[in-house]
């Protein structure tokens, strides 16, 4: 008897992201499809960033979880299209990110290659609220933070540095 796919989604919700362990791979939106093909379980996973070193670790963790639950035949597919977007990051994960000290993505602000220029010319930078004290008095330190998916910020009120999970 095959396990209903809804139950498999629940199992995968127990797999944490290796770099941000407070959120699960399902909440990040990188599990794109779970389906049975005969007695083989097919799971389509999309990478967050093309060069993300966590990709192979995530594959391994997904496979381990499924084996632990007794699935024998597993086929993992690396699916590129449509490309991952932070629009798929669940609300639950956004709250967990903030509690963990990472400002969650602000939807609709992905770079179009000219965002920095528009900000320089208009003098309006994107306001990223500090995840610790909620102050909007923050500055971007670098477009690329501790991992490709984050930017480095500093809060001018509580003076703490923090990561911003960039809109992508």
């Amino acid at each position: 008897m095959v396990t209903p796919t809804q139950e498999i989604w629940d199992w995968l919700a127990e797999v944490p992201d290796p770099e941000i362990p407070v959120v699960s791979v399902t909440e990040l939106g990188i599990i794109r499809e779970v389906a049975w093909d005969g007695d083989t379980l097919k799971v389509a996973i999309t990478p967050t960033y093309s060069g993300c070193p966590a990709t192979s670790v995530i594959d391994l963790m997904v496979e381990e979880k499924l084996r632990e639950k007794g699935v024998q035949n597993i086929a993992l597919e690396r699916r590129l299209s449509p490309p991952w977007t932070t629009d798929w990051v669940a609300q639950s994960a956004r709250d967990k990110l903030r509690e963990y000290g990472i400002a969650p993505p602000i939807d609709g602000t992905a770079s179009d290659g000219r965002m920095g220029r528009a900000a320089r010319l208009s003098g309006h930078n994107l306001t990223i609220p500090c995840p610790r004290c909620a102050s909007g008095n923050t500055d971007k330190v670098s477009q690329f933070g501790s991992t490709p998916c984050k930017a480095a910020y500093v809060c001018r009120d509580c003076l703490e540095p923090f990561d911003y999970f960039k809109c992508h």
């Binding site: 990478p47 093309s50 299209s81 449509p82 977007t85 992905a110 770079s111 290659g113 920095g116 477009q143």
Partner: peptide, 12 residues
């Protein structure tokens, strides 16, 4: 489509 989203940030 995958790569251009990353290159947009690089260009910025």
């Amino acid at each position: 489509a995958k790569a251009v989203k990353e290159v947009a940030y690089q260009l910025d």
